[in-house]
């Protein structure tokens, strides 16, 4: 039997890679996609605990369905905000968005 720890470790590694991408990438689209990767890593944990655990049942998959829905809405709104920003600032580099800089 596969222990649950392997799946949790996979989720942790993917989350860390996504976090590093969010912190270092300069293209705003790639930053958005790295956020999606982090959400996916969390989903792996939910599905893993729906199979392994003391009171494990299929409810974890229901939660994952809701998370995927929210993530899709987040991606759509994020890309829309990005287009509006691109039209105003004419760049997609996240470190150029400094109009709130004092």
């Amino acid at each position: 039997m596969m222990p649950v720890t392997s799946y949790l470790a996979l989720g942790a590694i993917l989350f860390s890679v996504g976090l590093y991408g969010v912190l270092t990438k300069r293209n705003a689209v790639v930053v958005l996609f790295c956020v999606e990767l982090m959400l996916n890593a969390a989903n792996i944990n939910l599905v893993a605990f729906s199979k392994y655990g003391l009171y494990s049942n299929q409810t974890g998959q229901v939660f994952t369905l809701f998370t995927i829905t929210i993530a899709a809405a987040e991606a759509a709104v994020g890309v829309a905000i990005l287009f509006a920003l691109y039209r105003n600032q004419n760049t997609v580099k996240v470190d150029r968005y400094n109009s709130l800089n004092g």
Partner: peptide
């Protein structure tokens, strides 16, 4: 990872 591999998870499966 340190915390994950030290935590004694149950072996039970759904």
């Amino acid at each position: 990872l340190h915390t994950l591999y030290r935590t004694p998870f149950t072996e039970e499966t759904a």
